[in-house]
Computed example of a mutant assay.
Amino acid sequence: MVKLKQQLSFAFIISILFAVGFGFVSYAVSEKKVTNFDQTIISGVQGAESPALTHVMKFFTFIGNGYCVVFVSAIVLFFLYQVLHHRKELILFIAVVVGSAVLNETLKLIFHRARPTLHRIVVANGFSFPSGHSMSAFSLYGIVAFLLWRHTSTPLGRGILIMLSMIMILTIGVSRIYLGVHYPSDVVGGFLASGCWLCASIWFYQRYQEKKYEEQLKRNT
């Protein structure tokens, strides 16, 4: 019970920090105070351009698109439902992934930021801030890491899980900058917005677990 309360506090605090961070970045984007930051990062990332790296970045952008997110989500849902038989975790997973997509579309409509136009390697439509690929990657691999962490007992397994999740999230985000379809501030904003939604969802889920635990204690006394 004490551990659950600690997890609740941690998820709530991290969610607030992500929200504050997103507020700061969105303000800077709205006031056009991120130009130097964006240009510096874009120069560094696109300065490493090569045919081989372009293929790699196109691959990571591909696996970060909507179709691949749906495919990976279907596999995770099947695993949660058929293998682990965790119905509540299944609901949490759906809420995080679908909610992140809805939140992204809402934020894009609010900020109406145009995409970069210089040195665009692939075609992309719609508004730029925050990055949809970055938000979906953070939500998908973040919630997968959270759920699998709960069923992984060894430090090595947990370490590998976190490392792989971070690699997927960061590489998908960087690929959008490399390919010229997002500003770095779009990617950072996407990570922060999705991180806030992810942690808030986990907080609600853990709060629900706490209430169920308290109800069970009452019934047993």
Rank of each mutant, 00 (worst) to 15 (best):
V98Y: 12
V98L: 13
G99D: 06
S100E: 14
A101Q: 13
A101G: 12
A101R: 10
V102W: 13
L103I: 13
L103E: 12
N104I: 03
E105R: 11
L107F: 09
L107Q: 07
L107K: 07
K108G: 01
L109N: 15
L109P: 00
I110R: 06
F111L: 03
F111A: 02
H112M: 11
R113V: 04
R115Y: 10
R115G: 02
R120Y: 01
I121G: 06
V122H: 05
A124N: 01
G126M: 11
F129E: 09
G132T: 09
S134Q: 10
M135H: 07
M135V: 11
S139N: 11
S139R: 05
S139Q: 10
S139A: 15
Y141A: 06
G142K: 07
G142A: 13
L147F: 06
L147A: 07
L148Y: 06
W149H: 12
R150M: 13
H151P: 07
S153V: 11
P155Q: 10
G157V: 12
R158P: 05
G159S: 05
I160G: 03
L161R: 07
I162D: 00
L164C: 13
S165A: 15
M166A: 15
M168D: 01
M168E: 01
I169M: 12
V174T: 14
S175D: 08
S175H: 10
R176I: 01
R176S: 01
I177L: 02
G180H: 08
G180D: 08
H182P: 03
Y183H: 11
P184T: 05
P184I: 02
S185W: 08
V187D: 08
V188A: 13
V188G: 02
V188E: 03
